[in-house]
Amino acid sequence: MTRSPSATDPQPPSLRGDILAYYEQGKEDARLRQGTGRLEFWRTQEILRRLLPEAPARVLDVGGGTGIHAEWLARDGYEVEVVDPVPLHVEQSGRLPGVTARLGDARALPAEDAAYDAVLFLGPLYHLPERPDRIRALAEAHRAVRPGGVVIGATINRFAGLNDTLLQGNYFLPERRVRVDAVSVDGRHAASSDDPHFTTAYFADPAEVPPEFTEAGLVHEGQYGVEGVAWLMGGVEEWLDDPERREAVLAATRRIESEPSLLGASGHVLTVGRRRG
């Protein structure tokens, strides 16, 4: 039975106020277009280009933000729809050529059954701290993707905060160290005025993600470390500025992207699942 959104549908779960306030600052788009954030952007782009079905195909970009990935996907010939719970993001992504956008929550997608060739979760999973919510969101992706279609979800790694804080030198501040060490134990990052650089999130152990895909009905097919270890190296921003060195960095990161012993060193991991055909 196909489910179409209607006025009688239950209202989707609401987004936490601190998460909404963080993204309403409008900083996310620039984060991925400059500095070391470009490594995350370019690596995500190249992995998706390998995993997605050939264009033209329908892609549902859940939590697609400002449309930073929807933009190039549309240029590549995909029919892209962004669903995001942040009104600012819907406004920004909806202005992009070839992209449609609407408000919605990953746990209650405004999408018909089996309507898409691929569903992307490049943000929602790490803003759902409770496992039942993540399973619910992945089950919605399973419902919305066609049989044989792919679901790709991004997670932040359990020790990403610890590694990044060490890199930036903030780990030597006692109050920051206490917070970071706590997150490395249970993965729960809470919004705090002492740490304005991020908001409420869940930092996952890469090994715990595939079982969540499986519980939602998806067949797990692989994991890919996005930044590898390159993001932790002091000269990476300058390397990315140089086209020749940038290609070397991307190639080196690609070489170790699915090495199990190194998955946890990456800042983000992409996990891939498929609806049975």
Score class of each variant (00 low, 15 high):
W42V: 11
R33H: 14
A252N: 06
P56W: 01
Q168L: 12
V183P: 01
A216T: 07
A57H: 02
D205A: 14
S192C: 09
V180G: 03
Y171N: 04
V82L: 02
R50C: 11
A201G: 07
R31C: 05
W239V: 04
A141Q: 02
V180Y: 07
E81R: 15
N163S: 15
A30P: 03
S4G: 10
R131Q: 15
F213P: 08
S4W: 08
R58T: 09
G149F: 01
A230F: 03
P10G: 04
I47D: 00
A137T: 01
L232I: 08
R75W: 06
G64I: 06
E112S: 12
A101W: 00
S266V: 09
G235T: 11
Y116H: 03
L122M: 15
G235Y: 10
G77E: 01
A141H: 04
V62S: 07
L52K: 01
V229F: 14
G273P: 06
S261M: 11
Y23N: 05
Y22A: 05
L262F: 06
Q92K: 15
V59M: 00
A191F: 12
R58Q: 12
V236S: 07
H268K: 05
G235N: 13
A70G: 03
E212G: 09
I256S: 13
G94W: 11
R95A: 15
R176W: 13
R274M: 02
A101Y: 00
A252D: 13
G217F: 04
R246S: 03
E244Q: 14
A154E: 13
E112C: 04
L20A: 15
A265F: 15
R188N: 13
R143I: 08
T155M: 11
P174R: 05
L73P: 05
L73R: 04
R177V: 02
G161L: 12
W239Y: 10
A154S: 11
D164W: 15
D61L: 04
P56F: 08
F203N: 10
T100Y: 00
L51R: 13
G63W: 05
H89K: 09
L263Y: 01
R275V: 03
T44E: 15
G222K: 05
S193Y: 10
P260L: 07
S14Q: 15
A55N: 07
A115R: 09
D84Y: 06
T36I: 15
S266I: 11
P129C: 10
V62A: 10
N163D: 12
A154W: 03
I47Q: 08
E238V: 12
G277C: 09
E238W: 07
P206S: 09
P147L: 07
F198K: 06
I256W: 09
D242Y: 00
L15N: 10
L262E: 08
E244F: 06
A204W: 14
